[in-house]
Design a protein around this nucleic acid. Sequence first.
DNA 1: TCTCCGATTCACT
DNA 2: GTGAATCGGAGAA
Length: 171
Amino acid sequence: MANILKAEFFNRDVLELAPDLIGKILVRKFDDGRKLRLKITETEAYRGEEDKACHAFKGKTQRTEVMYMEAGTIYVYLIYGMYYMLNFVASKEDIPQAVLIRAAGDYNGPGKLTKALKIDKNFNKQNIITCPNLWIEDDLKEAKYKTSTRIGIDYAGEFWANKQWRWILEE
DNA sequence: TCTCCGATTCACT
DNA sequence: GTGAATCGGAGAA
């Protein structure tokens, strides 16, 4: 029997949350009632105003205010005008941290994942705990993972681009 | 109000 | 290996 993750799970530092999400089950319920269950296989951490790769590093704006909201808030944004990225807000209010879901199930790529799950900006600012169409379950199995560097953030400079803040599930 | 560019993907050389 | 597609946020290049 799977447990649906509670708010407390998200209410801690993103560097603890991101690896813990590896191996968890992301469940999407579509409008027609179908369910899609995907094991999370890759995450990345974006940590606050000090992290130049994090959208919130310059402070609170219309775009980044989502990351200042409570733990478990869903942060969805459009990138390159074509793809939505799916994130979950970590830590407590007023601390902008988020975990990017880069891959789950057979979908290796954040753009492909959101396309398969039909995630769009309507999910932005909803909460993963209370959202009726999207939630995360614990499959009670221990997940093995490895770490790597984050992707697509060279603009943030070597210091941040070289951080081992990406987690990948190992078979 | 206008311009620049990105937490990507896919097609093509 | 390179570059186009495509749009809204953020800063004024």
